[in-house]
Nucleic acid binder design. Structure first.
Lengths: 187, 187, 187, 187
DNA sequence: TATGAATGAGGGTTCATTCAT
DNA sequence: TATGAATGAACCCTCATTCAT
């Protein structure tokens, strides 16, 4: 692994373990096993590291969200695929997921970065799926961004409860969540 | 207003404006118009201030959640009341709401504090409402904490989108959200 | 002595002993016997300290230059007074003198500071003395600033040689220098 | 041009532009277009570069000072030649001149280097010229080093005023300066 | 109780120097 | 010889905390 990746991985770990506000350079150096000056060959300050980590996490998530997505499957199947992918990503990569979730609405992340396009533009896929469902009279008429936020928010919230071990997430629960989010937006 | 309250209000403002990681004592002093030593008459360090602000915000929210709650109304009415109260609190007090939401699952807040009882124990009210609905066969059988997190998460997520002005929240949207969250947990 | 004065005195000493380029904050703190943060109660960065020291040294010199100056004395007497005062200042306060001399033409000092008015505006006194002498046909016609620089430069140069102990400066030498600088600008 | 010369030229430029205290290796590397390690093939640290630049500038100046010097010309002619050469050097090579002038009396330059013999030993030429003039009763009796410093100082000072554009230096001014410096040391 | 000058540990960052290529 | 990524000591500066007033 390259030094740059070492630094980013260490930063993500630290944010997850202690929170952004207590991430210091010396902690990053120690965790990444690099000299203190090395970081400045790759980043010009701390904010740049955090932004880079955020960007990478978003790219990583963007990839996952469309895994196994079949554009010709039924509306319901496609919906379930997207929601399951998001949930699975959160289960597999809690550090990335929490970091994205926490900082997407924080003043630390620049608005440009917050609104960056995901890889393969997964947001557009979801939004057009919603619009398609509304045209077919399956999904309730409402602001598509509101609808998107709604189903997205269910997954986020469920994952956060899971992370603090409020409940397990096995096959049963996962099915319940997917159904719940589907039902919430039906007419 | 007392000095202590000045300090807490300034802290909450700063967290909202710049994020916890960039809140410093000198910023708090300036915003609260107190001398730098004054704080130590009330708090022994920064974490204590943040915890106190968190606690107060939770108390404040706890009050709101049960406003106008009628234990003898129908299940649906009671559900809507609780959800609407949460949504309204978020609309009226964005700083408090966001602070609670961001730090409830952050390592900065101690687990004891995270699990503190709300004023009037609003959490218990919601959980028992869920259990009651499940017994009556209205609400789908699932882990009650999962169910709680689900309907709670919808409100949180919707509010965050509203804060960054993804969409407006007027009467129409609010009704859609309440319905969506209700439908999501029906059998 | 106040902390601020301690810091400025230590800075001047260090500049004299090691040169500006090797003056560091930690050296200043140690020499001035103050905590490392104390400086920021008085100055916002290192350049500000150096500028303040420069300004103070200029003020100090400005005072000396006009000591015992009698505006009604003869042209020659007035000239000798000014030149002697400059020379005496350099002998009594080598640190101030050298610092002013070295940095008056260095990029480190801002042009505004370099062109600051001395206390009592000693520069104007000298320039008008030159012009007066030229009108009377005693001093040779030439650009008054050139003439000023000429007599000023003799003193500076002589002092620098004295500082590195090229020669002593007692009564005999001093009289030779005053005469030399006077003769250099006669018609 | 060789890499070594590139490095020295870049160093001199930077000293002139920003002052010694802000010359860093990375600035030298960039300006000289060499890799950061290359310097260590020629110099073992920064002081060595500065000393080398100083030495070279002194050599360069030493050459100029005796240009067109005729040992059989009259005392006055020889004096004027030496003074004019110094002045001309300063006009043609301001960077070298200022660097020499600033650092000749600074703690940064070692005393051995400060007292180095110029090429062709121009200092001895001037000193013996002074002694000769004193023996002939033309030049005033005084310490020969003091006298040397006096006429040298006039040129230095005049040049510094010229560099900051206090006045022009054309034929008229130059003649005035040569005369002034000559008159200053006559009996 | 309220203050703010003083503090120094530790923050982010720079920079001379090394060394594998 | 020439390079530049890597290094860590030392830099400037911030900031939570203390204490005399």
């Amino acid at each position: 692994m390259s030094k740059k990746q070492d630094i980013m991985a260490a930063t993500l770990d630290l944010i997850h373990e202690e929170g952004l506000q207590s991430v210091t350079f010396s902690k990053i150096f120690k965790k990444a096993n690099v000299g203190s000056g090395t970081i400045y060959n790759y980043f010009s300050n701390k904010e740049e590291i955090v932004n880079a980590v955020y960007k990478e996490a978003r790219m990583h998530m963007g990839e996952h969200l469309l895994q196994g997505y079949d554009p010709f499957a039924s509306l319901y199947e496609r919906f379930k695929c997207l929601q399951l992918n998001r949930l699975t990503f959160g289960i597999l990569y809690p550090k990335e997921f929490l970091f994205i979730d926490n900082f997407s609405f924080s003043p630390y992340i620049s608005p440009e970065l917050r609104n960056m396009d995901d890889l393969h533009n997964s947001r557009e896929v979801i939004l057009s799926l919603i619009v398609e469902g509304q045209k077919q009279g399956i999904i309730k008429e409402m602001d598509s961004h509101l609808c998107h936020q709604l189903i997205h928010g269910i997954i986020s919230s469920i994952l956060k409860g899971y992370y603090v071990e409020k409940y397990p997430l096995n096959e049963t629960q996962i099915q319940q969540i997917l159904e719940a989010s589907w039902k919430s937006i039906l007419v």
